[in-house]
Design a protein around this nucleic acid. Structure first.
Lengths: 193, 193
DNA sequence: TTACTTTTTGAACATCTGTTCAGATAGTCG
DNA sequence: CGACTATCTGAACAGATGTTCAAAAAGTAA
């Protein structure tokens, strides 16, 4: 056998990325073999190399894609008041990260499996995202609305706190994501105002 | 060659655990081979099996040891006021986790590499630690000192925020750990009081 | 020294790893 | 139809994997 009936790169390509995302998130990059990804797609291992030059690129592309989408989706209107902007950031962060738990998990857990060059590129994107929140905090401090001693520390503290939702929240649990968001917003607001 | 000069289990045993801790933290459990650990100790791979029945047990023992020490070191005096108890928790958590960054990293990142039975045991220890903080928050709410809508959420939020220090703090940076702790305490205090 | 225990080596095992590629089949277009 | 391209298989590669174990050397105690 060779080419299979119905095979097409527009279909197989996305399926390869989806399978890799799911398996990397569940088992970790190093523990997932190319053959395991291929089996999930329903293809032989060799076929994966039509869609990625190597395993490392597959990981990097997933991470870069996630970070790029995160930056594209996160918008901030500097014309709004600092408190509104901060609230929107909190709600956006929780919602976006909840909707892409696998990608978030990989982006935070597999950094050490990137080559140094790839690591630097992902880190730059992460810093860009952090800078968005820090700008809100700085503007709030400048306007006299926020009381924050060190905006860099507050930025990292808030992001760590919000991202932590992903480690425990499950749909259908005691609280809805809306309720959880409200509570986190309440804590963030009081911590910086 | 066989047994080597000066070899003794009281020396090799700890060195095996130290090497595994360091290498697992740096490269991840799945990416570190038994031969790599053995090389770090200066021994052949077969010798490791005098100190662990298998690789999985080596990981589990490191994680369980860390969690046990964490629970043993974290003490809470219910006779003190809630605010004092909370402050002590924040300072302890940051200091303890900073002093054992490798073990903390493993305990958070390698959970998925545990067998289900081992995972359940580590999770139970983690929950026990979280319960310690939640008790402080509940007592503070009961005493009218704290204003917290949901103590479970606040517990998870605070722990995520504090543990996040490990991801960016480095000795010799812009701020000392004491200064960082003061800032985190300020944010935690305002978030719950 | 002798007898015994502790510790390590080094080879072996079956299996898995990422990656390559010639050849074969399916889709596509004139 | 015929020519061409896109896609996949299946085998092969060199090497790494966790683990076992007989044999050998070092420590210990009489």
């Amino acid at each position: 056998m060779a080419r299979t009936a119905g095979s097409h790169s527009d279909i197989t390509g996305p399926r390869v990325r989806e399978a890799a995302l799911r398996l990397f998130a569940r088992g970790g990059y190093a523990a997932v073999s190319m053959r395991a990804i291929a089996a999930e797609v329903g293809v032989q291992a060799g076929a994966l190399y039509n869609y990625t030059p190597d395993k490392q690129s597959l990981l990097f592309d997933l991470m870069e894609g996630h970070m790029t989408e995160l930056l594209a989706a996160s918008r901030d209107d500097a014309n709004l008041g600092p408190e509104t902007r901060l609230h929107d950031f909190v709600a956006f962060h929780i919602e976006f990260h909840h909707a892409r738990a696998d990608a978030v998990f990989i982006a935070y857990m597999e950094l050490r499996n990137l080559t140094p060059a790839n690591f630097a590129r992902i880190e730059a994107l992460r810093r860009e995202y952090e800078d968005g929140l820090e700008a809100i905090l700085r503007d709030g401090v400048a306007a006299g609305d926020f009381n924050v001693a060190d905006t860099k520390i507050a930025t990292l503290a808030i992001i760590a706190m919000l991202t932590g939702v992903n480690t425990w929240f499950r749909d259908g649990g005691r609280l809805s994501l809306r309720e959880v968001t409200a509570q986190y917003w309440d804590m963030v607001r009081r911590a910086v105002i």
